[in-house]
Structures are given as structure tokens and as C-alpha cells.
Design a protein around this nucleic acid. Structure first.
Lengths: 167, 167
DNA sequence: TACTGATAGTCAGCATACTGAGCAATATCC
DNA sequence: GGATATTGCTCAGTATGCTGACTATCAGTA
């Protein structure tokens, strides 16, 4: 930070960007997405972080409905519609009407989806390592612990909180 | 995590979401944005985190061009266009052709923008506190230190890296 | 059974973010 | 000076994420 910038910042008591957790959150997320997409593309796949999390959660909870899926990964219910659209369009998941509740849609992973998840896993894990490459193993663990703790305490402050649902 | 989910996850060696730094990054950013918007709206203003950072940086570096601004806050150059459009439309900033380089636009903050920044600062600082409310002061500092360190090591991995430019 | 409220999903609209392409202007090199 | 490369900015297209509104359905109750 230049001297000039420092003085101007002090004048309005606006902190440097690097002292704002919100700015650091945005930047880290930006890098995380870029690294994920690059690793997954290198592995020959076309799947976003959001689509990956949704697909993995559908696989782990076959037959769940969209609202439950959204709660398990903290997506907004209006966002999950488009994400599932794209998973279905790629042939990785299926959406069919629920027999128990005619409002709901039951989600299933396809064989193609299962194959994709299996083959993509190394790239996903590699991405997680790369985005922490500046930290030691211990520091990486500590970063995740602090993020989990901060997130848990503020979970209800977003429109799409995490919900622990029994499927 | 239920026993069933645990077993299914183990089967594919896919970790729990809470062990993925990428997922934690997304969630923390999601909360940070929600908290920021809520605090700013409570204070009677209509400004996003992205618009706030851009406006504060324009104020600290009067006359800078769009690419320089983007580099200072790590935005993509195609994103900054729309952000500035909205700041100009709200009367908080001005965009005029540069005299030195006819390709470039010089950015200035308006009096109204200065007034807004001044009045909005308490809400912004309050938001930063709220998003860390689950952490002690020491933990909050440590989280920011680790985020800064991880970000610095991966800065070049996104299309919109941070650039330290002398204006 | 009729009414009321809640819930599942979708849609329109807006604001980030990015990819890739393109235009105009500047910089560089021969 | 002129060809070439680079740079500043914009645009079209796609994918999150959200607000708010709407329909269809379900659940509880009078």
C-alpha cells in the first residue's frame, strides 16, 4: 500500500481491503472456483463446483427432493432449479415427479453421473490441495476449522442456510 | 452427518462438504454478502459489496482507469464495466474519457459518492464484525491471516489477479 | 368439508463472474 | 514509417445467487 493510499484510507477510517473478512472471502472463493474449473477441465470434464456438490449430494441421498438438496448444500431453492436443469441436460441426473407429494420432484443420479463422479474425484481433491498451496497442512486444517466455526455461528443470516435433514 | 451418508461418502472417497476448503469458501462468501447487504440496507443505502469496494478504491485513487481499478480489487475487466455503469447510474461516480490515452476512461467519485461512503462506513464495519461473530478476536485475526496467505500464494490462478499498481 | 396457512417448485428480473470475440488506440520493433 | 503486438474497453453468452411473486399442492383446523 502506498503512503498516499494509506493516508486517504485513514481519512475516512476505511480499512484496507486486506483487513476486511468480506473482501478476503470473495477473493478466496474466486480463486477456489478458478482452481476447481481448471483441474476439472484438465481431467477432461465440464462440471462446475456447484454442479459437482449437487451431484455428489444426490448420489449420497437418492430420491431426495429439490428443497432437501438445497438445504444440504446451502443453495437457494431458486438457484437449485437451474443447476439441476443443467445436470439433467448433461445426462448426469434425473428429475421425476414424486409419488408421495405431487408438488415435489425426486432426484436420482444416472449411471453416467456415477461414472463422472468417480473419474472426477482426483481432480476435485487436487483442486482442494492447490487452493491451499500457500499453507502448511496444519495451517490448512486451522483455516478450515475457523471457517466452519464462523459459518456455523452465522448460518441463519443467509437466505439459504444449511439444513441437516434426515432423508 | 448420518451413518448412511458417511458410508456412502467413504465408498467413493468423496469427503464431506465441510472438509472441502472450496465449499467452505463458497459458504463463507455467501454469508458475508448477505450480512453486508442487510447492514447496508438497515442504514438506508443500496450498495453491494462489489460496488462499495469499487467506489472506495476510486476515492482513494482519483482519476484511475478501469483496468487499474480492476487490478486493485481483483475484479475481472469485463465485470468492472457493469459495476461502474451502476455506480454512474446512481450518481456516485463519473466516467470520462482520458486525455492521455483515448482508449481509457478516467474514474472520479462524486460529492454524492463521497457522502455515501462516509455515511455507510459504520454499516460496513458492523458487517465485518457480524460475519466473524462466531470467532474470538484472536481467531478472527488468525482467519484473516490464513486467508491472506492462501490468497497470496494462489493469486495468479484466477483470471482476475490482484495487481499492485502505482497510480 | 371448507378455510387457512405452509410448502415445492418455477419464473422474471437484477447483480456478480467468467469465456471468448471484437474494436479502437497505443507501443514496439524492423 | 509501417507492420505487429499489446492494451483498454465493450459485448454476447453462460452460470451462479439473490428478491419477490406466482401456481399447485398439502396439512391442519373449524
Amino acid at each position: 500500500m502506498t503512503l498516499e493510499t494509506c493516508l486517504l484510507s485513514a481519512e475516512t477510517s476505511v480499512k484496507d481491503n486486506n483487513d476486511m473478512p468480506g473482501h478476503l472471502a470473495r477473493r478466496f472463493q474466486q480463486i477456489a472456483v478458478a482452481v476447481f474449473l481448471a483441474e476439472v477441465e484438465d481431467a477432461g470434464f465440464d462440471l462446475t463446483p456447484v454442479q459437482y456438490a449437487a451431484l455428489a449430494t444426490i448420489k449420497a441421498n437418492p430420491g431426495l427432493d429439490q428443497v432437501t438438496l438445497a438445504g444440504l448444500i446451502a443453495y437457494d431453492r431458486t438457484t437449485i432449479t437451474g443447476v439441476i436443469d443443467r445436470l439433467v441436460q448433461k445426462g448426469l441426473a434425473e428429475r421425476r415427479p414424486s409419488s408421495r407429494d405431487r408438488r415435489a420432484r425426486e432426484l436420482q443420479i444416472t449411471d453416467e453421473g456415477r461414472r463422472t463422479l468417480r473419474k472426477i474425484t482426483p481432480a476435485v481433491e487436487s483442486a482442494q490441495r492447490i487452493m491451499l498451496r500457500g499453507l502448511s497442512a496444519k495451517e490448512g486444517e486451522e483455516l478450515m476449522r475457523l471457517l466452519r466455526k464462523a459459518i456455523a455461528a452465522a448460518n441463519e443470516l443467509s437466505r439459504a442456510p444449511l439444513r441437516d435433514v434426515q432423508v
